[in-house]
Design a binder for these strands. Structure first.
Lengths: 235, 235
DNA sequence: GGATCTTGGTTGTATATACAAGTTTTTCGG
DNA sequence: CCGAAAAACTTGTATATACAACCAAGATCC
């Protein structure tokens, strides 16, 4: 591995482990250069690239600092549904309907790179804003990447949040559909009459491959997707 | 302006003007260094940053080349609907229902930074795959940025494609909703019975501000959104 | 003719150096 | 003690240089 890459790796470990918390100062170019016995330009490159990736921010004359973690997923801001509810002034609550291990259906096997009928984790959760159900979340999780998934308390932490802590996501694939909800979905979302629903199919990836496949279904009248998807473009 | 930034500006102009087409070779580090009377490292920096922005691609031992333009909007790959239809093996067709100038409604004025009742361009188009209507597109366009909008032939070129040529987009804001279509929409989309529709509200920005506000409505049974939204993340 | 070798050009990595520009800390003068 | 000047330290830009890794095309040898 190239020297500048080693320095990046080292710094990433420090940040991910919490040794260097948010907004804390990281070693200067000269300090890194000395620690790793490289030239300042090489140390600079590591700092530079981490800055471009949004992991650090730098100020001329002052120093380099660890950026806020949330800004790392800034490009596609799929806000945590709990945060979203709470920031709108309502109480967030989750009801866990199911949390189990089951044999992997074909589609899920393909999506997660598993074999058919191999064990896969499955969770089924309803997200509420006050007493109003906002979203039905059905999620399949790759046990190889997240072996302790079934032991979590998802009344306390959303799967999305838990997963992004365990297996920091590097990529996500999304499909948005407008669907007609089935009876079970209507029941869980307290829809007396069926109405158009948004279904977001989300496949997330971590460094080592596919992590989870989630189907997020929300009534069109209660939820909107996106908000803003900024995509950073040149200029 | 810093020297490396001047070189970047120069190269961007060449690419945007079409002087350097897609996949064509751009000057090497040494050539740029000589042309601009800078060191190779400075020329390299310009090439490097353009590569990180997805505007160029480089291969060791071979050279640097202009990336495909579409990949510039790769982060959120809203594919041109015409391309999408054609790549699925069907014939794309568009029907222009309306192309006019009208006084700006309040919502549109806010979105585009205009004054209420100031003139704004408006187009209404149905996109077809073979004979099947896929999408109803209602679009408001900022006349200050695209003064010739009403003189285009949108049977030939989609508004999205035209706009991205006239005012290269730098940012886009999206909201996805599941809605119940109104009568007019049903009629235009040939929906005998109303069915859940996806409505994508898209606001696009160019260097000089908001360009257009579009409402794209598609029957849930005929269209899916997204495909894949990759968001580049650290590591 | 065909396989191999050489050569020149390209990008990739790394170093040493210099100066500019900005901020913070220290020093010194009053 | 206070304020200004100076020093020290930080990041930002730029240069010159060296070598490595890679590729394509031409030359050479068999």
């Amino acid at each position: 591995m190239a020297k500048f890459a080693e320095i990046k790796e080292f710094m990433l470990r420090q940040i991910e482990s919490g040794a260097w918390p948010e907004h804390s100062r990281v070693p200067s170019e000269n300090e890194l250069a000395e620690q790793f016995s490289v030239s300042r330009m090489t140390a600079r490159r590591a700092l530079q690239e981490l800055t471009e990736q949004g992991i650090l921010y730098r100020t001329q004359g002052v120093g380099s600092f660890v950026a806020a973690l949330k800004s790392q997923s800034s490009l596609l801001e799929i806000r945590n549904i709990a945060d979203e509810v709470q920031s709108s002034g309502h109480a967030y609550r989750a009801k866990l309907l199911q949390l189990t291990e089951l044999p992997c259906p074909t589609i899920v096997a393909t999506a997660l790179g598993l074999k058919r009928n191999e064990p896969v984790f499955f969770s089924l959760i309803v997200h509420y804003s006050d007493a109003l159900p906002l979203q039905l979340e059905a999620r399949y999780v790759n046990p190889k990447q997240v072996p302790l998934y079934t032991q979590q308390d998802f009344q306390e932490i959303t799967p999305h949040l838990y997963l992004s802590q365990i297996a920091p996501l590097t990529e996500a694939e999304h499909i948005v559909e407008a669907i007609w909800p089935d009876d079970f979905t209507c029941q869980q979302l307290l829809l007396k009459k069926p109405e158009p629903c948004l279904r977001l199919t989300r496949r997330t990836f971590s460094r080592d491959g596919a992590v989870s496949l989630a189907y997020l279904t929300s009534p069109g009248s209660r939820y909107r997707l996106g908000g803003h998807l900024n995509f950073a473009l040149p200029r």
